[in-house]
C-alpha cells in the first residue's frame, strides 16, 4: 500500500493524474488514498516530484 509523507507532500496532484484505479483523491489541504483499491503499480511513486510517496507493507500512517 501507498504511504504519504505528509511533511513533504506539496498537494500538486501529479500522482492523481497517473493512478489507473482512481484511488488517490486531493482536496485543497489533503491527499487521501484508498489502499483497498490500490493495485501496487507504483506509478504515483515514480511521478511524485518530491518523493513523498512510498510503498509499505501495511499502513503505518498515524491516525489523524
Amino acid at each position: 500500500m501507498i504511504r504519504i509523507n505528509r511533511e513533504i507532500c506539496d498537494l500538486c496532484g501529479v500522482c492523481v493524474s497517473v493512478c489507473p484505479e482512481d484511488c488517490l483523491e486531493l482536496t485543497e489541504t489533503y491527499l487521501r488514498t484508498d489502499n483497498n483499491i490500490c493495485i501496487g503499480c507504483r506509478f504515483c511513486i515514480k511521478v511524485c516530484p518530491v518523493g513523498a510517496l512510498s510503498e509499505v507493507e501495511e499502513s503505518d500512517e498515524r491516525p489523524l
Binding site: G13, V16, V18, L26, V47
Partner: peptide, 17 residues
C-alpha cells in the same frame, strides 16, 4: 491535471507514465 470530474463521469483520463 487530476481531471476528477471526467473520471466521475466514467471517462478514463489517467495518463501513461
Amino acid at each position: 491535471i487530476e481531471s476528477r470530474i471526467a473520471r466521475m463521469a466514467g471517462i478514463r483520463t489517467n495518463l501513461a507514465l
